[in-house]
Design a protein around this nucleic acid. Structure first.
Lengths: 339, 339
DNA sequence: ATATACTACTAAAGCGCTTTAGGAGACAGC
DNA sequence: GCTGTCTCCTAAAGCGCTTTAGTAGTATAT
């Protein structure tokens, strides 16, 4: 059923040229005659020749594949794929995407396969903040850039949004609406972006002379949205005159809103909610979540940039990028209601 | 910076064996001694050998890559990636994912690159119902399976949900709730799944002796959700005592709901809405869209099955699969309100 | 002892491409 | 004439693996 594709060998034979002449013509080498080059190119077009990427990559010891390893593609990082895809296309790069489903064993498998596929680089949102396994297997083989705030070790390549700046935007927005009793909701997982958000929250609360109202989900709270739901209920139970809440993840914020409204509290009339990430769901008309959006395109560009740089220069100096997030105001926040 | 990985050659030299002996040991060939095999395997583990997939694929003339070409990854088909990813892993397959953004030129580029990467198969949600370009370039080179209802040519491989059965489930659900004045909303794009839904709608309306209330979006309506919004408004303008509406796509249904509620009509109190696809957004608590969900896992399994079958047997007989969708009842539908 | 068959290995070609080294021919300078 | 220097092309090795053909060596049958 499958017919043999046109190879350079066939082109060469057809034209009575050597294989290398054809290769040089196709790859714009300097030491090839203009006429010969034109001849080869026209013949290639005529016969419908297209280069075999695997063979090319193997011979060049470099590849046009970029690995993308995401904990959960149904998240902001999965949504970022769309931007990555666009940037990759600009450079004739191809994305091999994996969803690890938060399983370290799967993550390991993915990384190994990318190495074996000679990927020119790997983007990964690591399952665990302990990335030593990833570093060890990829060390001196393929550049890795960590995405999202879980890893911000200055010795590594990473790209994430500036969670401190984003948090400040969110909180100042609430404060600008007159809110003072502001709660923070976050999940139990440690990450540098979480601790950054927490620090900014604390300093702003201190600035206002307000006590900290921090709600942390516990391990057994199920998925992130359910965890948010639980915290929404806890906020109500706290009887703590809270008028606004900042949630460190949009998905969790949706859960918080659900918990709040199910408990009979209107958002934003009684409590304002702002999330973080800028997931697609936040923009739905029936959701309308005010959120701090990560600049996907810019982050995608930076990640590909870094990987391309490493591939070319084999430059061992780590590169970071803190992307400036942008507050998107929607329906879930409103001025505080005066008593 | 990049160090040379362990190759079979190194293993062979280290053990004083031939290259082929090593290859056979690693690949479970019959004509290799048990002791030798054990020796090779342990040495491989010791030296941390892993096979170069590109080289292997090139030599075997078959690859472990599967191409996935999706019009818009932020859609039900993008969400299906998660299932595809899981199935692919079972067979040691790797997914090269592209988002064509509905651009035929990009689609062409993606397909060509997959051919050049020696993909063992391609899953595609085609931009246009005219897939002759795709067929021509992939013919006799790589098996293709079309996903979604846009292509259901019996001469081709395709997998999609049974839109007739799904539509019937949706409409019978509404009818069971007492609805008789049921509208159908669809977009202007032709596709076999759309025509199937329309046909079932017509026959059921005829069965009830009700007139057809069909709302078709027009070309200039913007994205699918905006198009739905427009139709939601049109439904209100129609003054046609409509109590329920079936929308052929969830994203569009969200737009319809938005149009309806913005026009002051409560969903589901005044008008029930049911969608089709089962996108993640439909399950959000603040959305709660009743919908006909496509069985993602089953469809993913079938697609990989088909591709694997074609790759092995080079069997030219086309295969189809109509997956049975499943009605998921949520908040957006309610019993008709008696006047 | 010889033919037969089987086992366990090696040699070598090949997958389709890149790349290095080298060589033929043209042309200039002295 | 010889050397040197171009330009344009070829030969051949190599990327890391698979696979075919072939060959020792041992065991079995006659």
């Amino acid at each position: 059923m499958f017919c043999k594709p046109v190879t350079m060998r066939m082109l060469a034979d057809e034209l009575g040229l050597s294989l290398s002449a054809v290769s040089k013509a196709l790859n714009d080498y300097p030491d090839i005659g203009q006429e010969t080059k034109a001849l080869v190119l026209s013949k290639a077009a005529e016969m419908g020749y297209t280069p075999n990427l695997l063979a090319r990559n193997l011979a060049k010891k470099t590849s046009s594949f970029v690995g993308v390893v995401i904990r959960d593609v149904n998240s902001i990082y999965g949504e970022m794929f769309k931007s990555l895809n666009e940037v990759a296309r600009r450079y004739d790069l191809h994305l091999i995407l994996y969803d690890t489903d938060n399983d370290p064993a799967v993550e390991k498998w993915c990384i190994q396969n990318l190495i074996d596929s000679m990927a020119m680089g790997i983007v990964v949102t690591p399952v665990s903040e302990d990335v030593s396994g990833i570093l060890e297997s990829t060390r001196d083989r393929v550049p890795v850039v960590f995405l999202g705030g879980r890893v911000t070790n200055p010795a590594l390549n990473y790209v994430c949004s500036d969670s401190r700046a984003g948090t400040e935007q969110a909180l100042r927005h609430l404060m600008g609406l007159g809110h003072r009793h502001i709660a923070l909701v976050c999940d139990h997982k440690q990450s540098s972006s979480r601790s950054g958000k927490l620090a900014v929250y604390r300093s702003l609360m201190a600035e206002m002379g307000e006590p900290e109202r921090v709600f942390v989900s516990s391990e057994g709270d199920g998925n992130i949205m359910q965890a948010g739901y639980r915290q929404g209920r806890r906020i109500l139970e706290s009887k703590d005159e809270i008028t606004a809440v900042f949630v460190v993840k949009d998905m969790m914020a949706l859960g918080v809103i659900h918990g709040l409204t199910e408990g009979g509290v209107q958002v934003p009339e009684q409590i304002s909610v702002v999330g973080y990430d800028g997931i697609n769901e936040a923009a739905l008309p029936m959701v309308g979540l005010t959120t701090v959006a990560q600049p996907r395109m810019e982050m995608a560009e930076k990640m590909i940039d870094i990987l391309r740089g490493k591939a070319e220069d084999a430059n061992p100096a780590p590169e970071h990028w803190l992307a400036e997030p942008r507050l998107v105001v929607r329906r879930s926040t409103a001025p505080v209601r005066m008593k």
